[in-house]
Amino acid sequence: MPASRDFRRTALAGAAVAAALTASAIVVACGGSGGGSGASAKLSVTDSYIPLPAGASGDDSMAAGYLTVRNTGGAADTLVRVSSPGAGSVSMHQSTDTTMREVDSLPVPADGTLQLSRGGTHLMIMGWQKPPAVGDQLELDLTFAHSGTITVEVPVKPLTYRPGS
């Protein structure tokens, strides 16, 4: 009987390890849609932040969002949509010398980065369910053409914040 109990315990532990392995395998697959071939995108999102918008606070606040998408895979991907459960609309914009224009998609090069940064490509976040405050986090769901959706919690930072400062 004790031997059998031991066996059962070992089997359960083994099953748990297997389950954990499966889970981590799924995470990898989500990030890069099937590794091994070397010709797929492997994406991660870093340095995301939302500077607290200037001016009137309220649900009509218009905020910019910045982040970096890193692709360590051998294939390019494209950011096709950004949404948030906490905001009415999130759109992608490019600032030029004199104005800004909305874009439908943004390329993530193979073995490269897509950088959304001040004065360049940025997200425009409107229709906040709750007026943004420093320290809040906003969920952003980034949908890519090949890699599916990556969800990030983006912190609201002071107005003049810069990454690394």
Binding site: P53, A54, M62, A63, H93, S95, G119, H122, M124
Partner: peptide, 12 residues
Amino acid sequence: TSCPDVCPTTMG
């Protein structure tokens, strides 16, 4: 003032 990117960055 409703410029989300360049104007607040420059003024900031």
